[in-house]
Design a protein around this nucleic acid. Structure first.
Lengths: 355, 355
DNA sequence: ACCGATCTGTCAACCGGTTGCCAACTATTG
DNA sequence: CAATAGTTGGCAACCGGTTGACAGATCGGT
């Protein structure tokens, strides 16, 4: 069965190198259902039904219309369809930072899942700013069928307001009444802290992420709880930004804290921190152990390779897209957050403390 | 002056957690120019002109209408606007692989430049397949005002066919009649080969990228020319895919080639190659020097950090977007490809050959 | 005060689909 | 064979802006 939402056929264009055909009136613009109707000898509305409402027209007419459509190489005009229906076959995704590898897998997961169900992904970034994020979200909301917010920085109430308008799914944050996909950090954190404790560490530092980050708070809580259990001291340090550079800047505070093990909000911080500590002559992991979060691209390039708590980010993106698309089909979102597992990936940046 | 293309105002929504308002008829859907017209006591067409054709209506009426629009928190319906005009205020970007860091900066560059001129970026990936790329391009073309192809894999003629339809800009490839942004690899390659020659290398291997990659061929040509000049032997090796994994797989061939210096099509290959060679006991750079391409995120995380020929990818994305947007304003594209400079970034993975 | 030029707002058609409603047609059944 | 139920196709209104054509209003110049 041909797919009128994205048919591909060889255009009989012999490589003219003029400027693109202007959309002027009377130009040879793309065929419409009216063209098909004329060719098939039926009413345009019948064509519309044949192409989008399966079963509404008789098999015979259906066939005639489909043949005519194919002959004309017809493709629906998405705007004409969107105008009366509001449906656009697109979903929006807003990430905090396009160049942060953490989001790569989320983007790909959402894109792949969306494509598989004939939805196009529209991407925007918030540059880690709650305001920019809200602007982007509002602008998007009018053009997409639903929205995925990955690690949103704006307030819960803003998100709820958006969700009241169109379906919204959230990754890396839990909000009552909005479908969420959240890595359950406790398992991974417990593994990490246990591993550090068994390697002789007694004082641990957590380098936090952006203050608006819900996930950063959860991770800190998880670290505190695990440290309590394993009888480690835990101190929280702030970072200026959740990037490699932010990690370098926080190195001073880490040293000053006296901790021998560090868990950072994300891998970028961990990498920057490790670089700076090594530049200052510290030995990782002999003198200080470093554990990151997310297992991003590049985490295993470092020397030593980074120990990290892996979240299945691709799966998060894919799950969020699935949740969203199911909601678009009229299903209710899940009653509570969908949790995915995290796990410790032990590499070389953590290990026995050599006093 | 308020911006009706993306106004943000506090919605007076008190956090109801029901499912999103359905787009049913008669719902409290968003205000239209008809609502404004009624409120302002003018004709809808006047409203339309006031909001989009500066100068066409009197200052007084303009003011009245703008006030009414603001009062109603009006925002244009993009579909209604797109239907008669064809303009959508979006540009499409197709990349070969979303998770390849090479494209991160391109994406961000295009996104930033687009946003600054009130265009939204729509992203798709081709998964390195010419067919998928064409499908994605065709699907996009009907919904965007223009298209950027980053490192396209499809044939020139296909691209020309697309370009005949809507403005297209291309990155990392040169096609007669289509505006292109192309890093001029020769400068960087010359620096690289000279550096390698001066470090005692005599046999060099180039690890090629995907066969459809125009840029891979240019790089190979550049390497050949430079090796000729500096009197080095040059051999070309094929990779299965332009990823870290592909780099690992080609390590065997590199060793078999007897080359003491390797230039790879991109950094991912270089990183994988280096990992595999080191795992096999080789010492980088004492026994073999490795030079990558692009200076992607993470290239400096490796041990030793990667020497690489940097292309200003962010600038490429930004330039391509600028070219495209200028064409949308009616300007002609540049007569020939826009070239940006490349330069060698010397890090630890290349150096003196210790025989 | 008159006249043409310019400005400003209105009318109506249009972009290309979707859909409620109705009439005609087909099939089923008594 | 007629009555009834179920299908199928057509008509026309509608989604929300844009725009060419035009007429009334305004204005400057003489």
């Amino acid at each position: 069965m041909p797919d009128y939402d994205g048919a591909v056929t060889e255009a009989t264009n012999s490589g003219a190198v003029t400027s693109p055909a202007k959309r002027g009136r009377g130009e040879k613009s793309s065929p419409t259902i009216y063209d098909i109707a004329r060719l098939a000898g039926v009413n345009p509305s019948t064509v519309s039904r044949a192409l989008s409402k399966p079963g509404r027209v008789s098999a015979k007419t259906q066939k005639i219309i489909e043949d005519a459509a194919e002959q004309l190489n017809y493709r629906v005009n998405p705007f004409a369809r969107a105008l009366p229906t509001g449906r656009t076959q697109t979903i929006g995704l807003i990430v905090a930072d396009i160049t942060n590898p953490t989001f790569f897998d989320i983007i790909r997961g959402a894109e792949t899942t969306g494509s598989a169900r004939d939805y196009t992904l529209v991407l925007a970034e918030s540059a880690e700013s709650p305001e920019t994020e809200l602007v982007a979200a509002r602008r998007m909301l009018s053009t997409v069928d639903g929205l995925i917010l990955a690690s949103p920085r704006m307030d819960d109430e803003k998100i709820l307001a958006l969700a009241a308008d169109k379906p919204v799914a959230v990754i890396n944050r839990e909000i009552e009444g909005v479908p969420c996909v959240v890595p359950d950090v406790n398992k991974g954190i417990n593994q990490a802290v246990r591993s550090l404790a068994s390697n002789g560490h007694q004082e641990l530092a957590y380098v936090a992420g952006p203050p608006q980050s819900w996930m950063s708070s959860r991770r800190w809580e998880g670290v505190q709880a695990a440290c309590d259990w394993y009888k480690l001291g835990a101190v929280r340090l702030e970072s200026s930004k959740p990037t490699v550079d932010g990690g370098r800047q926080v190195a001073r505070d880490v040293l000053a804290s006296g901790a021998t093990a560090v868990i950072t909000y994300n891998d970028l911080l961990a990498i920057g921190l490790m670089q700076e500590l090594q530049a200052a002559g510290m030995h990782v992991p002999d003198q200080i152990s470093i554990v990151g979060f997310d297992d991003i691209f590049g985490a295993d390039f470092t020397t030593p390779p980074l120990t990290t708590v892996r979240s299945p980010l691709g799966e998060c993106g894919s799950l969020a897209a699935t949740l969203l698309l199911d909601m678009l089909l009229g299903q209710d979102g899940p009653a509570e957050a969908v949790r995915v597992d995290t796990e410790l990936v032990v590499r070389g940046s953590s290990g026995r403390l050599i006093a």
